[in-house]
Design a binder for these strands. Structure first.
Lengths: 254, 254
DNA sequence: CCAAAAGTGTTAATGCTACACCCATGG
DNA sequence: CCATGGGTGTAGCATTAACACTTTTGG
């Protein structure tokens, strides 16, 4: 019996020839720019949906892990050398009913990143660019496959993650001001937050922010102190985020 | 070109022959009994890990969705006709480095259910039974593959879901007392909650509980009122849970 | 009557919201 | 000097945690 099954399975013959599926990873890369949430999309060079917009992604290779595949595809299609921000798995979709060519399982991932530069057009790969999330969700922009649903799920995940984890800082650079961090929360939640209360809460949460001693300059108004993530709150590649904000940075109640 | 690729992909030849993987679904079915959290495990009838304990699950069939596959496998291996409680996707694992026979992707699912009866030994399928989650996580019980990690992730997901969603009631039957609901939270969180404050909060949360008018009987002490989930909080198969408890049923701060 | 569990009332501490107010910079 | 944004203080309100107390059953 060359193909044995993994689990007891009374379905007739199902264990003799387990079906095999192509598996892709897709990455919903989110950033904050211009006061709004943006998603990274590529122009498809091939059918189906040729010329349309889609999430960066591609096939998982034999012997490869999901996270590695997502990081590899993102690097290939955007030209980033080191993965910026925080990458985590979102959820899987399929395999039935999502690709016109047949069953394809995709494992969607979520990247929260600062506004990094992406590949210019004319390169070997497709042109990649940031687009407002609201345009995708409102249907102003069309995206391939079930990618609108995936993006909607990703945004919802990002929203709820921000309250309890230090992941808001994943959208900022290494050092940032409290106002920049606040802009992230306002963009993701689509609300306005009181700058004074946010400042108190962000700086007053133990284990969240660390004062660098440096100051921002060049902007209007009084210079702001520059912070970085405290060591216990830093997220490392592949590890789940451990630090929890308690009390959370609450989003206003609906 | 019989196999075209889904996305632009500069990796040489990767798009010509996308790798195909066996895909399984595994179900972490959790319940509350005897004041502790329990997980449903089956005895494996075949290699590898023959005779060992594992999560119920099996191969996804062509043309099948993930959720349908999970529900089907659970029904086949436990004998339940209608799916009790609440089923949702957890996350995916693999395909590399988790099965001794090669690359297998698994999509883990989480079922929160009342303590339903499972298949007795001697049936065609493997014997299924409830086991304390703590025994699995402490290493007292060994489980096959990477199922210990999957169970740990499932428990963590269940813990955080309970605070904000009405899913605690998924562990109870159709009608339940506030004390039974409280026992769920205490088992999942591993804490003690003040019965009086919990009662006030559970019954006082708008859109959560609905008084049936009936009373429990036969127990020690004063009879308790029987409740059911309010219509707006009920979870329906396949739909994400929409109702949010605001304010949440807080777990005690660490 | 006593033990046990359900359910209500009350109070002190805590946390949040709103906003007055001062500080430091650019123009 | 004024506009702009950074940052602190504080009063009022809402929520929570802790616990006294009453109710209703079984033994």
């Amino acid at each position: 019996m060359p193909h044995s099954h993994l689990h007891a399975d009374p379905a007739p013959h199902a264990h003799l020839h387990p079906a095999r599926f192509p598996v892709t990873v897709d990455v919903v890369a989110l950033t904050v720019g211009g006061g709004e949430l943006r998603v990274l999309l590529i122009n498809r060079l091939i059918e189906p949906f040729k010329g349309g917009l889609a999430l960066p992604g591609g096939f998982v290779l034999p012997g490869e892990g999901l996270r590695d595949a997502a990081a590899r595809e993102l690097a290939e299609e955007t030209g980033v050398a080191r993965l910026p921000g925080h990458l985590e798995q979102l959820q899987s979709y399929g395999p039935a009913g999502r690709d016109p060519r047949g069953d394809v399982l995709t494992v969607a991932h979520l990247l929260l990143a600062p506004d990094f530069p992406v590949l210019a057009a004319g390169s070997d790969a497709a042109h990649a660019g940031w687009h407002p999330v609201s345009d995708v969700l409102d249907g102003v922009l069309d995206v391939a496959f079930d990618h609108r649903q995936i993006i909607a799920d990703a945004v919802e995940r990002a929203r709820s993650k921000l309250e309890y984890s230090p992941l808001g800082a994943a959208f900022c650079g290494e050092e940032f001001t409290v106002a920049q961090l606040r802009a992230v929360y306002e963009a993701v939640w689509g609300t306005r937050l009181d700058p004074r209360n946010f400042h108190r809460k962000a700086t007053g949460t133990p284990g969240f922010l660390e004062d660098t001693g440096a100051m921002s300059a060049g902007e209007a108004g009084r210079p702001a102190a520059l912070f970085r993530l405290a060591p216990e709150s830093r997220f490392v590649a592949g590890e789940p985020v451990r630090a929890v904000l308690n009390p959370p940075l609450m989003r206003p109640r609906g």
